[in-house]
């Protein structure tokens, strides 16, 4: 991985970038997000962990409004999330998202997957977009696969392409929704390596994951969720060695036993 041309500005590091205030979300009778208060600062890497069904994926998806919220507010860089339409689309362009199931565009080549956003959303010329895309693909280690289709790549390769696709938009923040949960152990490492180097380059990241190793290495802060609420927030060091809530102790006891 080369040194980054696209290193996010370290200036202004530490000011709030994503702010969730009093966010409530229901799925029918299920109270999926309960009064969520969360501030992610510029350049910060926040890892969200918790048991299945705790609302961590939902939380992640509300930040670019793939899930709507019932109450509360979410702001990105001081701007409240628009309801819909063009304004929402242009906000989403500022927020990179990586999905559990990769979601690469199945009918487009790897290169086209990465250039679609820059060309159609940003209005970048094709030649320039392709040059940039090839650099990004090289950076995540799949440059030689540029002309293949997603189905011809392994899961780990596809996920790295998905990261390149998100980076091509030069986002202010990257959301990772369980990016390694659908991968074999071998492939998990190659994806995590890319994510760690992204974190080192100062990218603001919200990562929903079960990878405790990643949380320890790369996170500035761990947010522990259970039953739709944020139960505990702390540095990874403190959280893993000395969790304060019973719910977190119980969760860590279960997953760290193996």
């Amino acid at each position: 991985m080369t040194a980054q041309e696209t290193a996010p500005v370290s200036a202004g590091r530490g000011e709030p970038l994503v702010v969730l205030d009093g966010v409530q979300k229901h799925f029918g009778a299920l109270h999926a997000l309960k009064d969520i208060e969360l501030t992610v600062k510029r350049g910060e890497v926040v890892v969200v962990i918790g048991p299945s069904g705790s609302g961590k994926s939902t939380l992640c998806r509300t930040i670019n409004r793939l899930e709507t919220i019932d109450e509360g507010s979410i702001t990105l860089d001081g701007q409240p999330l628009p309801q819909e339409g063009k304004a929402l689309a242009s906000l989403r362009a500022e927020v990179g998202m990586v999905f559990q199931s990769f979601n690469l565009f199945a009918h487009k080549t790897i290169l086209e997957n990465v250039t679609l956003g820059p060309i159609k959303v940003r209005g970048v010329g094709r030649a320039e977009a392709e040059k940039k895309a090839r650099e990004l693909l090289d950076r995540v280690g799949v440059g030689h696969q540029a002309d293949k289709y997603p189905a011809q790549l392994s899961g780990g390769q596809q996920q790295r392409v998905a990261i390149a696709r998100a980076l091509a938009m030069e986002p202010k923040v990257m959301l990772f929704d369980e990016p390694t949960s659908a991968l074999d152990p071998e492939m998990i490492k190659e994806v995590l390596d890319v994510m760690v180097s992204l974190a080192e380059q100062g990218m603001t990241m919200v990562v929903v994951t079960h990878e405790m190793g990643f949380a320890r290495t790369a996170a500035h802060r761990v947010v522990f969720m259970a039953d739709g609420a944020i139960v505990e927030e702390n540095t990874p060091e403190e959280f893993f060695t000395n969790p304060s809530s019973d719910r977190a102790k119980d969760f860590l006891g279960k997953i760290l036993k193996h």
């Binding site: 793939l66 063009k86 242009s90 989403r92 998202m97 979601n103 679609l116 956003g117 959303v121």
Partner: peptide, 9 residues
Amino acid sequence: EAARAIGLP
């Protein structure tokens, strides 16, 4: 969802 996430209307 992925298409919306890169900002396509």
